[in-house]
Simulated scan of single mutants.
Amino acid sequence: MTAISSPKRRALIDAPLLDAATGKTPRRTPVWFMRQAGRSLPEYRAAREGIPMLDSCFMPELLAEITLQPVRRHDVDAAILFSDIVVPLKAAGLDIDIVPGRGPVLADPIRTAADVDKLPVLEGEVPEVLKGIGIILAELQPHQALIGFAGAPFTLASYLVEGGPSKNHEKTKAMMHAEPQVWHKLMQRLTPTIKTWLASQIDAGIDAMQLFDSWAGFLTERDYREFVLPYSTEILAETPGITEIPRIHFGVGTGELLGAMSEAGSDVMGVDWRVPLDQAAQRIHAASGAKVLQGNLDPAILFAGNDVVREETRRIKTEAAAAIDAGHATGHIFNLGHGVLPNTPAEAITEAVAIIHES
Rank of each mutant, 00 (worst) to 15 (best):
L257N: 00
E139F: 04
A178L: 15
L41I: 11
I96V: 15
P70A: 00
N168G: 10
K195F: 04
R111C: 03
A352R: 02
N343R: 15
M175Y: 01
G270E: 03
P70E: 05
K167Y: 10
E125R: 06
L277V: 02
A46V: 14
A287M: 10
Q36M: 07
T233H: 08
P88C: 05
P109N: 01
E256K: 15
A322C: 08
I324C: 04
A46E: 14
K291Q: 13
M34N: 01
V252S: 08
T220I: 09
V252C: 04
P88L: 06
P165E: 13
P109E: 05
L119F: 06
L81E: 02
P299A: 07
L146W: 02
A322V: 11
P142G: 09
E263M: 12
P104L: 02
M34W: 00
L258Y: 01
D325S: 14
A199T: 01
I136N: 02
L219T: 03
A323Q: 03
P127D: 05
S359V: 14
S166T: 03
A46I: 15
D108M: 14
A329I: 05
A79Q: 03
A354C: 12
K8T: 13
E238K: 15
V161E: 00
V71D: 08
P230I: 11
G251C: 08
H184D: 07
A352T: 06
P276Q: 10
G23Y: 00
S359H: 14
A323F: 00
I206E: 02
F303E: 00
G305H: 11
V31D: 02
G295M: 07
E139A: 12
V87W: 00
L106G: 02
R35H: 03
R28K: 15
T67D: 04
G132S: 06
Q69N: 10
A287E: 01
P345I: 14
W273C: 10
L336D: 08
F303W: 06
W197C: 05
P100G: 11
P153M: 05
E351I: 07
F227M: 04
I66T: 05
A150P: 01
Q210K: 07
R247T: 02
R222N: 12
P42T: 07
I80T: 06
V99Y: 12
G337D: 01
D298L: 09
G289Y: 12
P240F: 07
R283C: 09
K167M: 13
H169Y: 13
S262G: 09
H143N: 14
G164F: 08
I4V: 13
P230L: 06
G38D: 04
Q210V: 11
A321E: 13
G305R: 06
P60N: 09
H357G: 03
L219N: 05
P345M: 14
G103F: 00
T233P: 09
